[in-house]
Design a protein around this nucleic acid. Structure first.
Lengths: 170, 170
DNA sequence: AATTTAGTTGAATGATTGTTCAAATTTTGC
DNA sequence: GCAAAATTTGAACAATCATTCAACTAAATT
């Protein structure tokens, strides 16, 4: 809260009037972040010819994130892990992550059976979580991408415009 | 610290004499947890005929963990993500995780080239991180295992004694 | 048994935390 | 232009936090 007072320049009273308490502000932030994430992914997959290709682009973007300075993983993932002591908020974060998995599963159903789409979405989420944690290790983009190709061999990595991947190689 | 005073029954002075300060205690805990993790994995792979099979067993164990009550993911993973504000401790956690990746890479070199072993170890770590995060979502063991099979197809899932996997299916 | 070392106690300290509220200010609706 | 509603302010409060320390007890050494 103290950091937020500083960064926003607002006084405690204003923020407490708007959000009630710390948990309220946190929950609202989680909602905003989740909505933002979902609409970003959705709009990328909606307009694409190939779901697979847009997923590759999304993943390449996550890899890029990891090499930005002040990388801070993913708000939802971090919250889910940190909030063991606050089951209410943790459930909120988990719910959003499951929604995101649902979005991927939904779009994958265009190209696979319901069963296949579901299991592929889970594998996808595992890799996303993997990137979000492994990102801090600061190895190389090439290594992370190679590992993604190995773990997600059903994605059309090679039909991607090479620039998209090359520009991801530091 | 307060919780530790309660749970151990020790008074502040005793703990501060032994560990210096909160960071010291935390660092020592990370070291202990990491050493424990590494020796558990190492001893499993050392005595095994097939590295692949022992890795499958390790992963199945991680999946089991996720369905234990009071599941709390992995101390190193959680610490790495939480300690953005304490670069010193975060680097410590990251170092341990990279050590663990090194152990897997080392054993995989028995069956693959150095290059192959390295990239497979990275993919393995991504899946482990994935399990550690996804574990909170409480779907089903079957779904998590199926997703692991999909993402790690180079592991000998089918040569595993069926009991080991069956007993993992809730 | 005497002396040094190691470990524990219990209370206290100062800093930081989340939170509240009456008064002042700005914005809105008529 | 005015009254009502909405926001902001600034100072304060109470709780919690990590940490310290002199006094006390137990263990080890000679």
């Amino acid at each position: 809260m103290q950091v937020i007072f500083e960064k926003t320049g607002l006084k405690p009273g204003s923020i407490y009037l708007a959000f009630g308490n710390k948990e309220g502000l946190f929950k609202e932030s989680l909602n905003y972040y989740a909505q933002q994430s979902i609409s970003k992914a959705t709009s990328l997959m909606e307009g694409a010819d190939s779901i697979g290709e847009s997923i590759c682009l999304i993943l390449a973007g996550f890899v890029d994130d990891a090499f930005q300075k002040d990388y801070c993983s993913c708000f939802l993932v971090k919250s889910q892990l940190e909030l063991s002591g606050t089951p209410d908020l943790q459930a909120h974060a988990i719910g959003h992550l499951r929604d995101i998995e649902g979005v991927y599963a939904h779009f994958l159903e265009r190209e696979y059976s319901t069963e296949e789409a579901k299991i592929k979405a889970t594998s996808l989420m595992m890799h996303i979580f993997g990137i979000r944690v492994y990102g801090y290790h600061q190895t190389t983009k090439a290594q992370m991408l190679a590992s993604l190709k190995l773990g997600l061999p059903w994605l059309p990595w090679d039909t991607l415009p090479q620039v998209a991947l090359l520009e991801s190689v530091q």
